[in-house]
Design a protein around this nucleic acid. Sequence first.
DNA 1: ACAGAATCGAAAGTAC
DNA 2: GTACTTTCGATTCTGT
Lengths: 101, 101, 101, 101
Amino acid sequence: MVAKQGHNSGAEGQLRALVSRVERIEEEITGLNADKADVYREARGMGFDVKALRQCMSERKQDPEAFHERRSIVDLYHSILRGKSGTAVATRVRTREGGDT
Amino acid sequence: MVAKQGHNSGAEGQLRALVSRVERIEEEITGLNADKADVYREARGMGFDVKALRQCMSERKQDPEAFHERRSIVDLYHSILRGKSGTAVATRVRTREGGDT
Amino acid sequence: MVAKQGHNSGAEGQLRALVSRVERIEEEITGLNADKADVYREARGMGFDVKALRQCMSERKQDPEAFHERRSIVDLYHSILRGKSGTAVATRVRTREGGDT
Amino acid sequence: MVAKQGHNSGAEGQLRALVSRVERIEEEITGLNADKADVYREARGMGFDVKALRQCMSERKQDPEAFHERRSIVDLYHSILRGKSGTAVATRVRTREGGDT
DNA sequence: ACAGAATCGAAAGTAC
DNA sequence: GTACTTTCGATTCTGT
């Protein structure tokens, strides 16, 4: 127990400080999100496909190796579900190796 | 080992079955969400405050005891942040009991 | 004014009915989500790559044409950002057709 | 080279600029979120109830008037659903004034 | 270290 | 068409 009854104002000051810090941070984040929205709005105004742009950027965040690995598995699943499963393709339906990262 | 080259079709069938099940489930969920939206639309049409209603229902999901406990802590924090902290109130600023779950 | 003072109990009954209906629906949804989680758990247990599976299923929800369209734009953006933009590729950087959807 | 078919090499530069700006913004946001998480971690370390704290802060974002209005309606709904509706309470079950937003 | 929970960001649908 | 609300997926953190 940090403070006796009637005198843990220290905790109150801490609470206020904590809240101030978080609110400050959240304001900044809000502003940045607004900036981001502006950029996307500009992009749309320039004729870019914003949704594709987002997808592109999210793919850029993954390292390329993992991305291609994932992509090939997804395509394999697609081919199976389309009923096109050949024998070659079938050899690695099961990932069996740590699977997802 | 059931499958080697050219014969783990079992895995393929399993994949298809899995996907079917999930897609079926998601269809049902979609339908139920539509139903829910309908009910809220009705509620609004009857003059209810839908936002308050949602909040009310979400509070009902918490067990009442935990809800009141949480509520009193939240109100305590409010009073401190408003600068109204009396000494009485201050006695339990710190939760000190495992805190949140 | 829908109801006289002290006599809009009808509204109360309506409120209860509305809440019951929504809660019923939400229970069902919760159950179905649990089922879905179970299926994915099974899938993982069978050695499938759940993340790839999710991606595959979400792609299946889009119609194939739009999907390939989107995919090609994304790839175009990738190629530009990698600095590989040739003139051929550059010809359709801008979507310029009201975009999709 | 600058101008040929389509002459939209400019579009490529624009795309890169757009992407840079967004990626820069997202880095900053990521950093700020990390800061926020740190603050909450501190708060927890000091014995505060982080979940209550979050709720408190989210309530602070609403203007107090609207908050109390909302709160009273929510409580009214609670009382009705608990079956405690007296006639006094019942007088304003229906909001009837555009209500939310 | 893995399963689970919770929080956060993105996307879709809807209301105005 | 814009803005908002809700829903979904993904990531992160905690507990075992």
